[in-house]
Simulated assay, not measured.
Amino acid sequence: MVTNPRFQWDIVARYLFDDAIMAGLLTTIWLTIAAMVIGVVLGTVIALMRISNNAVLGSIASGYLWIFRGTPLLVQLIFWYNLSALYPQITIGFPFGPNLGSFDANLYITVYIAALLGLGLNEGAYMSEIVRSGLSSVPPGQREAAEALGMSSFRVMVRIILPQAMRVIIPPTGNQLIGMLKTTSLVSVIALQELLYSAQLIYTANFQTIPLLIVASIWYLVLTTVLSVGQHFLERHFGKSDRRAKTVTASDEDDNGKVA
């Protein structure tokens, strides 16, 4: 790789901090963050709907998962981008009730909105399963004990259930975040100028395909490395209670051995 002249490392160095590449990099970063925020919030709501005793909410959540996990993300992105072909005018309101307003889909469903809808709604389906598994990992006795103390359902969820579930939720969520960073490259199909599409625009003009792909790959590696380090420290933070429990158990075993 170092000595092969076909890699053209001088061109890689020339375009590594190119203005177009940096602009695409910033777009990739904010798109990743925004889509993950949508996915985490929506996934939490869907997870709570699935574990609720309400059959209607559970059916809606199951239907949501069936649609968004059962179709390719690339297809979803193209559908959102062409939403105006199905609904030229989008009306916000209640079924069989008053309308709160309507807007022109061609005007408001831009490539940015289409990308956020596609990435965020798809991520919400996968995050719901991660959140649900985390909530299910907390023993039922924790909720029963908190309710016996007079805590409301909301306080039980926020103060008791979620802090314990985070130990299970954080590791796969970190993987999803890293995956989302790389998945944003799919929005190039709808001509959103993120990192990969910025590189494509440049090598379409100067025919330096390999060096520009290397430039994009270097920045993806840098970002995934930063996210991996952040994930490591988050896992350490939420795993403190486990380490304390192991320390206490080990000390108790030593004491029992001395007594014996």
Rank of each mutant, 00 (worst) to 15 (best):
L25P: 05
T32D: 07
R143F: 10
V56Q: 12
L31V: 01
I113R: 11
L149H: 13
T173F: 08
I21W: 05
V111S: 10
Q142M: 14
G97S: 08
M22P: 08
F238R: 00
G70D: 05
L25C: 04
L234G: 06
I78R: 03
F17G: 12
N4S: 10
R159M: 14
V138M: 10
P171E: 08
V215G: 07
V259E: 15
I130Y: 00
L117G: 02
M22V: 14
V226L: 15
I130S: 03
N99Y: 13
L100Y: 14
L135M: 10
I214R: 02
Y220A: 04
H232G: 09
P140F: 13
N99W: 12
S128H: 02
P98S: 15
I46P: 02
A35W: 00
F238P: 02
V229R: 14
L195I: 02
A47M: 04
V131K: 04
I109Y: 00
L86N: 13
L57W: 11
L181Q: 04
K258F: 11
P211E: 03
S52A: 14
I214W: 03
A23P: 01
R143I: 01
M151F: 12
F103N: 09
Q176I: 13
I109E: 05
L223I: 05
G230V: 14
D255M: 14
A191H: 05
L149G: 08
I109N: 04
F154I: 10
D104L: 10
T27K: 00
M127C: 02
M157L: 15
L234Y: 06
E129Q: 13
Q193C: 08
L135N: 00
W219I: 03
V40L: 09
I60F: 11
L65E: 03
S102A: 13
W80Y: 11
Y126C: 03
D242P: 05
V37L: 13
K240H: 14
P211F: 03
L48T: 02
L31W: 01
T224E: 10
P172V: 13
V56H: 13
A115Y: 01
A23I: 02
